[in-house]
Simulated scan of single mutants.
Amino acid sequence: MKKSVIVLSILALFLVGCATSFTGSSKISGGPEQCVEICSKWKMELVGMVALGEYTDGCICKVKEAKISTSDIGKAVILSSASGAGIVGVWQKAND
C-alpha cells in the first residue's frame, strides 16, 4: 500500500511540477521588416531569419559592428533548433 502511495505522489509531482507557458506570437508576421524592428530595439542588427516547421520562426540578430561569418550563423541556427523541431529554412540578409 505504501509503495503505491509513493508512486502516485511522484507521478502527481511530475504532472504539475513542469508547467511551461509562453506569451506573445510564435510567428514573425511582418517578415524581415519586423525582424529589423525587433533587432533595433535590442540595439542589434538583423543578419537572418529561421523557420522551424509550421509552429515558429524567428530573427537572428547580432551586435552592431561585430564580425560574424555565415558559418557562425549556421551554428546558431543548429543550436537553436536542438529541440528537435528541425530547420525548414533560413533566410540570410544580403550584405550591403
Rank of each mutant, 00 (worst) to 15 (best):
E65G: 08
Q92V: 15
I73H: 03
W91E: 05
C39V: 04
Y55L: 13
A19T: 11
K67M: 11
E33N: 11
K64P: 05
V90C: 07
W42Q: 15
K2Y: 06
C59L: 07
I60R: 00
T56R: 13
L52C: 07
L15W: 10
G30R: 09
I78W: 00
S69I: 07
K43N: 15
I87H: 02
S9F: 14
K2V: 08
S21C: 06
E33K: 13
G48D: 01
S4F: 12
K62Y: 05
S71E: 15
S26A: 13
A19Y: 14
V36N: 06
W42E: 15
M49L: 09
Q34P: 03
V16S: 14
K62A: 11
C39R: 02
V16R: 00
V36R: 11
I6S: 08
I38R: 04
E54H: 09
I28M: 14
Y55W: 06
A94V: 08
A19R: 08
L13S: 14
V5L: 15
M49T: 05
Q92S: 09
K41S: 14
G84A: 06
K67Q: 12
G31T: 07
A12W: 00
G17M: 09
I28Y: 05
C39N: 03
L13R: 00
G58F: 02
S4R: 06
S4P: 00
E37D: 15
K64Q: 13
V77H: 01
V77K: 01
V88L: 09
I28N: 08
S9T: 12
V77I: 15
S25A: 15
A76C: 04
E33S: 14
V5K: 03
V77P: 04
C39Q: 03
L8Q: 03
I87T: 05
I73E: 01
T20K: 14
V63N: 08
I6D: 03
G31S: 07
S9A: 15
V7L: 15
K67A: 14
K3P: 00
V88M: 09
C35E: 01
V88N: 11
G89Q: 11
S21V: 14
M44Q: 13
A94K: 07
V5D: 10
G53N: 06
A85Q: 13
V7I: 15
L46C: 03
K3V: 12
D57E: 08
T56Y: 07
V5W: 08
V47G: 01
D57C: 07
V50R: 01
E37C: 01
G74H: 02
L46Q: 03
V16P: 04
E33F: 06
L8M: 12
A94E: 14
Q34K: 10
I60W: 02
C59D: 05
C35F: 04
M44F: 01
L11R: 00
K2R: 08
I10T: 11
A76K: 09
G48N: 02
S29R: 10
T56F: 05
G53T: 07
A51L: 08
I68T: 10
V5F: 13
A82H: 04
K41A: 11
D57S: 13
Q92T: 14
I38V: 11
